[in-house]
Amino acid sequence: MSLQSAATLANSALEPDTLETVADLDAFYDEFEYTGRRDGDEAELAAVRAIRPRLFELLTADRDDAVALVNAMLADAGAVPQLVRHDVWDWHLHAVGPERDLPTRILVETAMAMIDVIRSDEMSRLGRCADPGCGGIVLDLSRNRSKRFCSTACGNRNAVAAYRARQRR
């Protein structure tokens, strides 16, 4: 879920920007079931918006560059992995406490998820959207690794374009 939320957050910076209000951030927070501290104000929104370029850089990096970015994110946060259990979640790993700010928790959770991607040499699960006008991040968790578009909108736009091209012939 951390990688999905990171890809969604990074892609939210593309046109049209889908993270412009505190309500947008509330919806993101709820959709990806974040827990812990939540300020719910404009300052938090600005701080979350500010980490989007770092997430985009990490999710589009090659394996070696991703290692350096992950290590920097964890070091910057003073991450100390610990097993925790809370709410409806059984034992799982957190590397920063729930009192830390939301942007820090997002970066650390993404970095922790990327550790598994890097160690299992699954960087091919991350790519760029096949829509030539998009450039968004695609997280492909499909069994046959066939996901090409970052969103349904990009997929539909390309399907309609292909259909119209066939009709013209």
Results as ranks from 00 to 15, higher is better:
D65W: 00
A77P: 05
E109Y: 06
C154I: 02
A113S: 13
E44A: 11
G97M: 08
R54G: 12
D41F: 14
G36V: 13
P98M: 12
Q82N: 12
A66N: 05
D41N: 14
N71A: 11
F149C: 09
A77F: 06
H92F: 06
C150I: 05
E15L: 14
T60E: 08
L83A: 14
D26R: 11
C150N: 08
R145I: 04
V84R: 09
D17R: 13
D101H: 08
M73R: 08
L83F: 13
L14R: 09
Y29F: 15
N71P: 04
E122L: 15
L14A: 14
M123A: 12
L55Y: 03
M114D: 01
M73L: 14
V67W: 04
H92Q: 07
F56K: 10
W91F: 12
V117G: 09
D101W: 04
P103W: 13
D39R: 15
R63H: 07
V70F: 00
R37A: 15
A95Y: 04
R119K: 13
R54Q: 14
G155H: 02
A72I: 03
M123V: 08
G136L: 03
D121Y: 05
A77M: 08
P132W: 03
A153F: 00
V117I: 15
V70G: 03
V80S: 11
A130W: 00
D24F: 02
D41T: 03
A68C: 01
A77T: 04
C134D: 02
K147E: 01
R54M: 11
D87S: 14
E109G: 15
G135I: 02
F28G: 10
D116R: 13
W91S: 07
A130Y: 01
I118M: 09
R125S: 12
A46P: 09
E44C: 11
A79P: 00
C129Q: 03
F149G: 08
A13M: 11
D101I: 09
A66V: 02
A75E: 12
P16H: 07
A46T: 07
S124Y: 12
R52E: 01
A27F: 05
A153T: 12
S151G: 05
P53M: 07
A79L: 05
M73K: 07
V67A: 11
A66P: 03
T110H: 03
C154P: 04
S120K: 15
Y34D: 01
S120F: 10
L107H: 02
L14I: 08
D121S: 15
E42R: 13
D87W: 10
C134I: 09
P103N: 13
R143I: 11
D140N: 06
V84C: 01
L107K: 08
E15I: 15
A75I: 10
V108S: 06
D39C: 13
T18N: 06
V108L: 10
W91R: 10
E122M: 14
D62A: 08
G135D: 03
D131Q: 04
V48C: 11
D30P: 02
V138Y: 02
A77W: 04
S142T: 15
E20N: 13
A95V: 06
R119F: 03
R143F: 00
V67R: 10
